[in-house]
Design a protein around this nucleic acid. Structure first.
Length: 891
RNA sequence: GGGCGUAUAGCUCAGCGGUAGAGCACCCGCCUUACAAGCGGGAGGUCACUGGUUCGAACCCAGUUGCGCCCACCA
């Protein structure tokens, strides 16, 4: 070939050292602006917004996983010529971040109240700067190809404006309201929570029966709430208690008289069929109270301390419980002894404290119409949820959603844009409205649920409410990639707000994204959930340090089955590192031997093995493309692994050594430091092989790039001399290059080689030991490859006077070897007998099937033909082995 | 209390109607002209159990058992 650049491979070390390429490559990519997207280009858009990491700390393995998947999608589309935008940013994570900073303060012996609201918020911003810097550093390390110039934060000015805008619109449309309701209250975080921020666990409580009077006996697990009872309820159809309805009973310990009401909610089968009614501390009771006009008596404050007058005042709720029981027992009112009772208890998802249902004045989103629209968008196919098995969950949720409590009694977050006047005025202020001033006007103290701003993320980050070019180009987003665990927290809310905020654009354009691709959770190597308390949490940085970013990414992608949890262990990252190294060395070998990317010769000039590897390459490319469309990362990564290692490296590269050596010598870079004479003397075989190696590696490195961007970039730029793979073209599968004949011929070759190797191994021949042998019966397409075959199995061409001492045959090929007495007759007999048994079993199975008339009548022709082939093959195999056994010298 | 998923080699998982697969781990042999982070060979599964459908079932259906997960305002 022509003299190109001086063999660059000479510079490649014999092992891939990630640290030497990762940092510089990433900075170069960013500097050259490869990750930025143009709002005004003609390319089709492909936008994925990052699920904004919380600024509570640093990224964990789950983020690394999610980012690997998103980055792979984005990088592939970029290579395919899309205007690809991965929108970066972070979430202020209201309650979570406030808790972190409060804990930090606590170490200094301070509470947020010591600082005051403004100073505290200042403090959180400082935290955000630190944490945010750490997170973006980790993202760089991972190789995330995000458009850094567009980075957003849920509390930055633009996004706050978006929040205020939509709040105002919803308020004006009557979809946001303020009301006294029973909400989930966390006495530790000191705030209201939405329903999904409550985690239910099966806890063991005690069900206690209390006698209010001779006829009225109720049961409860929260005895202290009886202090707030304002009625006793029975089922209206319950014959036993008809006479009590409308009467009053005296509530013990309080002296209050409360009515007995009839309410259908009461299950006459449960317990005594009588229910104590505490409207201020139980959602059901609240409803009963409303139906009967009962007063709601709050007996507990925000800290869970009893406020009801009397001996229990000032006690914590969990102290009050036994105290109340003791007092009741003293009066002989405890009917049955307390007994264990397993029931679902709600805990704060942030701090695990037992949640207290509490009557409270809060802001709510009326979800009815929004949830309906969200269900419809999936029902009518505008939004696709992948994998489809997740759809039932989606519908179950959106079709039964309760109103969303959005106010939080926190400081860190978007403050509710509502002002109260001195005369009871309530004014919701839009971003461009005048803030009411003057005596007595105050702003609502609460902030919004952190998910309120996340719900706007797909469009607030693009400039909404302005109709920016970015909105124009990238809304709706093409795909959303996120974990199934936040389907309701986040995806459902984005859908509700996206559809609502962009309704003017029409139903097709209003959706926030057209596809939701859900992934699973990262788990440890034994499938256990990673948790701090269990001590199995892994810092992705540690593994990246040890094995490189590519290895981590490859491992994560390789485990990514849709919406399925991903077990991952260090051994697996190591295996991926080995893969990267394999790729490195294969490329290094190719470069050392003059591999070139150029125009491939016509198929007629290629060898069978050339056509085979090209055929396999293009089949793999087609397979990978199809799998990408279905988000089958695990399978496509596996396909790439298999092609690279088992087909390209183990067979093609080994086979290539023979033709390459005809052009001079195989260059090893380690042992054989010959100069460039190869280029001058290179024969046609060598040139052809160099081009095929170049062709395969070029495509292979391209198709691997989305998963392993660093190694692929380093190798590909060396191979091609081009600037970057980031914006290079995606390799397109060419169906015309598939070659069934070549695949069949190489399959035959592989079988032959494997059998000979097996024979050698069982004969105890050392791998390097050369043996003379005669090959006969090679099929037409393999006849020209005898040299390659001999090289793979280390069989020399026999010299004069060759006398074979052993023989084996594979398919139609006979191999006569001169083992010069090295043969182990007993071992050989054993081997052959084993093979014979296998072949006989095969034959038996096939014959049995073919003797089955129903099978012959009903099975498809292809299947029957296959079985017939199998029968014939088994027959000839048996003949062959029997002949060999007969020829064996007797022991 | 509802709903969903899953049970395949020692481990983690693919396969989902036509003779059981991968990675890691394991055993034997190798510094064979890229790579010992490697090469060659090998061992290892009555595909949870019980019935059914089918010429044929790991795969479809029913039930049983084990294990997960999600949802839930029955005191």
């Amino acid at each position: 070939m022509t003299d190109t650049s001086p063999a660059p491979a000479a510079d490649l070390p014999t092992a891939f050292v990630p640290a030497e390429v990762e940092g510089t490559l990433y900075e170069r990519w960013v500097q050259r602006g490869y990750f930025e997207a143009d709002d005004k280009s003609d390319r089709p858009p492909y936008c994925i917004v990052i699920p904004p990491p919380n600024v509570t700390g640093s990224l964990h393995l789950g983020h690394a996983f999610e980012h690997t998947l998103i980055d792979a999608l984005i990088r592939r589309r970029r290579m395919q010529g899309y205007e690809a935008l991965w929108m970066p940013g972070m979430d202020h994570a209201g309650i979570a971040t406030q808790n972190v900073v409060e804990r930090e303060l606590a170490r200094e012996g301070l509470s947020r109240h010591d600082l005051g609201r403004e100073e505290f918020i200042e403090r959180v911003w400082q935290w955000k700067e630190r944490s945010g810097g750490q997170i973006s550093g980790q993202m760089r390390r991972l190789g995330d190809s995000v458009a850094w110039s567009r980075e957003r934060f849920t509390m930055d000015e633009g996004l706050s404006r978006a929040v205020q805008t939509i709040f105002k619109r919803l308020y004006d449309d009557g979809l946001i309201y303020r009301a006294e309701r029973i909400i989930n209250w966390c006495v530790r975080c000191h705030t209201a929570l939405s329903d999904i921020e409550v985690e239910h666990t099966e806890d063991e409580g005690e069900l206690i029966s209390i006698r209010y009077n001779d006829e009225v006996v109720v049961a409860t697990t929260r005895a202290e709430t009886m202090l707030g009872d304002t009625a006793v309820a029975v089922n209206p159809g319950d014959e036993r208690y008809q006479h009590l309805i409308g009467t009053e009973v005296e509530l013990p310990l309080t002296g209050r008289r409360i009515p007995v009401v009839a309410d259908p909610h009461v299950d006459p089968e449960f317990g005594t069929g009588m229910v104590k009614v505490t409207p201020a501390h139980d959602p059901n009771d609240f409803e009963i109270g409303r139906r009967h006009g009962l007063p709601a008596l709050t007996i507990m404050d925000e800290l869970g301390v009893i406020t009801a007058h009397g001996p229990f005042q000032g006690l914590d709720r969990f102290e009050a419980r036994p105290a109340v029981v003791a007092a009741l027992r003293e009066q002989g009112r405890i009917v049955s002894e307390k007994r264990p009772y397993v029931h679902a208890v709600g805990h704060c998802s942030r701090c695990k404290t037992v949640v207290e249902p509490r009557l409270s004045l809060q802001w709510f989103v009326r979800v009815g119409p929004l949830a309906k629209a969200s269900g419809d968008a999936v029902r009518d196919g505008r939004v696709r949820i992948h994998p489809k098995e997740m759809e039932p969950r989606w519908f179950a949720w959106v079709d039964n959603m309760h109103d969303w409590c959005i106010s939080r009694q926190l400081w860190w977050g978007h403050r509710i844009p509502v002002w109260y006047g001195p005369n009871g005025e309530v004014v919701c202020v839009g971003p461009d409205d005048e803030v009411p001033t003057g005596e007595g006007w105050t702003q609502d103290e609460d902030v919004l649920d952190t998910w309120f701003s996340s719900a706007l993320w797909p469009f607030s980050t693009l400039g909404w409410p302005e109709q920016t070019p970015a909105m124009e180009k990238f809304y709706p987003n093409q795909v959303l990639v996120t974990g199934y665990d936040i389907l309701f927290f986040w995806v459902a809310r984005m859908m509700m707000f996206g559809l609502y905020a962009n309704a003017d654009a029409g139903p097709e354009q209003a959706i926030p994204f057209s596809t939701v691709a859900l992934h699973g959770m990262v788990r440890d190597e034994r499938g256990k959930k990673m948790s701090k308390s269990f001590g199995n949490v892994v810092d992705p940085m540690d593994w990246m340090d040890a094995y490189g970013s590519d290895a981590l990414r490859f491992t994560l992608a390789r485990g990514a089955n849709p919406a399925t949890d991903v077990p991952i262990g260090e051994d697996w990252v190591q295996a991926s590192r080995n893969f990267c190294n394999k790729l490195w060395n294969a490329t290094r070998f190719a470069l050392l031997n003059g591999a070139q990317v150029g125009v491939l010769p016509d198929a007629s000039e290629l060898s069978v093995t050339d056509r085979w590897i090209i055929s396999r390459l293009h089949a793999t490319l087609a397979e990978v493309d199809a799998l990408y469309e279905d988000f089958q990362f695990a399978k496509l990564t596996e396909a790439l692994y298999h092609f690279t290692w088992d087909e390209f490296c183990d067979w093609y590269v080994e086979l290539a050594k023979t033709p390459l050596s005809r052009g001079g010598a195989v260059r090893t870079g380690t042992r054989d430091e010959r100069s460039d004479e190869r280029d001058q003397t290179g024969g046609a075989d060598a040139e052809r092989t160099q081009l095929v190696l170049g062709h395969v590696l070029d495509a292979l490195l391209r198709v691997l790039h989305p998963i392993t961007p660093f190694v692929s970039e380093a190798l590909w730029t060396t191979l091609t001399g081009d600037e970057t793979l980031v914006t290079a073209e995606w390799p397109v599968a060419d169906a015309s290059l598939t070659d069934a004949d070549a695949e069949a011929a190489v399959a035959e070759l592989q079988r032959l080689v494997t059998e000979v190797r097996r024979f050698r191994s069982e004969q105890g021949l050392k791998p390097g030991q050369r043996v003379a042998a005669r090959l006969a019966g090679l099929s037409g397409s393999l006849a020209g490859h005898e040299a390659e075959i001999r090289s793979l199995v280390r069989l020399d061409v026999p010299a004069d006077g060759f006398t074979p001492t052993a023989s084996l045959s594979v398919g139609g090929v006979t191999v006569d070897l001169d083992l010069s007495g090295a043969i182990d007759v007993a071992a050989e007999r054993r081997r052959l007998e084993k093979d014979l048994a296998t072949a006989r079993k095969d034959l038996e199975q096939a014959e049995k099937k073919l003797a089955n008339e129903q099978f012959l009548a009903k099975a498809p022709e292809q299947v029957v033909a296959k079985i017939r082939d199998r029968e014939a093959a088994a027959r000839s195999e048996i003949d062959r082995i029997e002949a060999q056994l007969a020829a064996l010298p007797s022991a």
